[in-house]
Design a protein around this nucleic acid. Structure first.
Lengths: 229, 229
DNA sequence: GTTTAATTGTGAAATAGATCACTATTTCAT
DNA sequence: ATGAAATAGTGATCTATTTCACAATTAAAC
């Protein structure tokens, strides 16, 4: 919002990859970057849509999902601050494979894709950081989704709560930014089943839930349920 | 097996990426590459194991899977000839995230990982080819597995037969190289359910099955079942 | 070629989870 | 503050799929 904040060089929420860039490269990036704010519920990018920018999530949370003709959407992952959005499709298609929606108010930086590509070509360390980020994200997602597949519902929900706590919010207490239906879309289940699981966890004092504030009380037991439940 | 076959420069089963390398780079690769043959059932690489080579699959077929403590293995994908194995973990970990097993006799080239990395750093076009291959593979897998999640069994099995026909064997007729149990491991189901699905498809003349030779007779109907069944 | 092991087929019973129809609560807009 | 819309909770029913136990077939080993 203030003038200084619009500069990448003194950004207080910069990515790890940015640290590998020279001052000259950073100012090159600044020229081709636009910062925008968006609100909860806004769609950042729609699948099958051509995209010309890589989006950097300065603050706030985003969900990545696939829109299905027959049946409900499928949520692939939640994205936390200081992440790049759209890297998956950078090296393959010109269109985005997924849709992205803000699940809180967010601050975004739109970096022109061409500029991004030039930086990757010109700076091996930057390229390496980006590739590591992309690889790790992809690998984590793949393993999580594979793991989900062979759990039953209580296990799936437990797993998802632990995922949010450990991977996304990095805290035992957090605001559940998704509705029961959305959680169901993360695990290919139904609103009702999610409700029942969460209520049971609450009854059994594994979690505390009031409004949309969730606190994990018994990690061990939840992990146990996640493993074989 | 003959002397000429051991050279990358006149390999008759080379990858697309290889075409981007200069003669000098190719001979650099040759020095650090070993060709081996393996048999059906052999384990090429075990998850959580350090690996020092990227494996190039010259001929034959491989399954990529995760070994689970509690419960059956999960098969991530089948890998067809002229593919690199282990790229997923190249940019992140020093250990492989997945296990790989030959499901037919295979010819393999072990390329030292350091050499591979040097080539990627030194040749932007090579790097690009590798990244595109990796991105596409990852994206396809992710979409397929997500799609599977919200189908019911007949849909999952239909989907898997079409996947084999279209993506892997590129033919309507092919040898089913996996047992019913293994197919079940691809879709998080059971041997018995796979059996029932395949028999029904056969009865309904959507496929022809004798021994392990499978022929797809009615693509349209199978696709229909895959979509909403 | 015979024996042994592994894989596949089959139907009945058990069950996890979806679906449905409805109520309660929370959130949002005016 | 009030009403409307969205989200969440609840229990009964229904159904797809797993589980189990056993028979049949196919592949491997000697």
């Amino acid at each position: 919002m203030s003038d200084t904040e619009l500069s990448c060089s003194n950004c207080d929420k910069a990515s790890c990859a940015l640290l590998t860039l020279s001052p000259k490269e950073i100012s090159e990036m600044e020229i081709h970057t636009n910062q925008t704010d968006m609100h909860k519920g806004d769609l950042l990018l729609r699948q099958e849509t051509p995209f010309h920018s890589i989006i950097y999530l300065r603050s706030g949370y985003v969900k990545e999902f696939v829109i299905n003709k027959n049946g409900p959407d499928q949520i692939v992952q939640m994205i936390k601050p200081r992440s790049y959005i759209g890297l998956q499709s950078l090296f393959s298609n010109k269109v985005s494979a997924f849709s992205f929606q803000a699940i809180s108010d967010v601050e975004l930086c739109y970096i022109e894709q061409d500029t991004f590509n030039i930086l990757i070509r010109g700076n091996g360390d930057f390229a390496r950081e980006i590739l590591i980020a992309l690889s790790n994200e992809t690998l984590n997602n793949q393993k999580r989704i594979l793991g989900l597949n062979q759990k039953q519902i209580f296990g799936k929900v437990a797993d998802t709560m632990l995922y949010m706590s450990e991977q996304i919010f990095e805290n035992k207490e957090f605001d559940l930014m998704m509705s029961r239906s959305e959680i169901a879309q993360m695990i290919a289940s139904t609103r009702e089943s999610v409700t029942k699981a969460l209520l049971w966890f609450h009854q059994e004092r594994m979690i505390d839930m009031r409004k949309n504030r969730l606190k994990i009380l018994n990690v061990t037991r939840l992990k146990d349920i996640s493993k074989k439940g």
